[in-house]
Design a binder for these strands. Structure first.
Length: 271
DNA sequence: ATGACCGTACGATACGGA
């Protein structure tokens, strides 16, 4: 089972790139962020023609998240992160696909720091940590995938950067991410590649892509009852190099088949 | 560095993004 996360930066403008990538990699589950499209402007017909069902939470101009499933429609469980009834931004959606609970999330950027936007980022993070703790306690097989807008460590950004004030690298952002992971989640990309570059984002400005000056912002966290099935994880860097690309590349993982329990045959997981 | 690049909504410019 191949699960990917991709900040598309405008799903309608990016539709040709998205469809090309779906056709090339055929992921089973896809978490999308930054749809930048109203609920009614989601390109469902084009995605269905490509073989995918979808649930999504749209928003005009900004934000917007979706979950796609190949050959199925994800079973929606939430379209809001609990904890703040006044939060009107489309930054979280959650659905069940083939026995796995999948969350597609888009954390607030938080810049400039300090300021109210950074405070909002930390508040959203606390809500995510609280909800993740509930999912963990419930023992559900979960993948929390998306654009966390956090560079977890200095190994996750190009050397020589001068981003001291950036909310993506701030100690409070990093410690919040660490507290989340420390609940027992597995950071799938780092698990498979303990060393080396795993950039998922290269800014449009400053020749960042040609110079390979990127950051790792997009993460897939696995609950323990899925982490043991992790066989592969990586970033599809080539997607970032295409004409008309998003400033993010897809990150993905592969879960191997479930182990068969004695006396209980389980359906074979799809590759 | 009031810069750049990109998508959106708007309407020929402003804002958000990271």
């Amino acid at each position: 089972m191949r699960i990917a996360t991709f900040n598309v930066n405008g799903i309608n403008t990016r539709l040709p790139n998205l469809l090309q990538w779906l056709e090339a990699e055929r992921p089973d589950v896809v978490c999308l962020q930054e749809l930048k499209a109203d609920q009614h402007a989601f390109p469902l017909a084009a995605l269905e023609a490509a073989g995918y069902g979808a649930v999504w939470q749209g928003q005009r101009s900004w934000n917007g998240v979706a979950i796609l499933a190949r050959g199925a429609t994800p079973v929606l469980t939430r379209r809001r992160l609990p904890g703040d009834p006044d939060d009107a931004q489309a930054r979280y959606i959650e659905a069940a696909v083939d026995g796995v609970l999948v969350a597609s999330l888009y954390l607030p950027n938080g810049n400039p720091r300090p300021g109210p936007k950074f405070d909002d980022k930390l508040a959203w993070f606390e809500r995510l940590i609280a909800h993740a703790a509930e999912l963990m306690a419930a023992g559900v097989p979960v993948v929390l995938a998306g654009d966390y807008n956090v560079v977890p460590t200095e190994a996750d950004i190009y050397p020589g950067h001068r981003e001291k004030e950036n909310a993506l690298l701030a100690g409070q952002s990093r410690s919040a991410f660490a507290r989340l992971v420390d609940q027992g989640w597995t950071d799938a990309l780092r698990q498979r590649h303990p060393e080396g570059r795993l950039w998922t984002f290269w800014a449009y400005l400053h020749q960042r892509w040609p110079n390979d000056k990127g950051m790792r912002l997009d993460h897939l966290l696995l609950s323990p009852n899925l982490a043991f099935r992790l066989t592969e994880a990586d970033v599809s860097r080539d997607v970032r190099g295409k004409a008309g690309a998003s400033d993010h590349a897809p990150a993905w993982l592969v879960l191997g088949p479930e182990t068969r329990r004695r006396g209980a045959r389980k359906p074979k997981a799809s590759a």
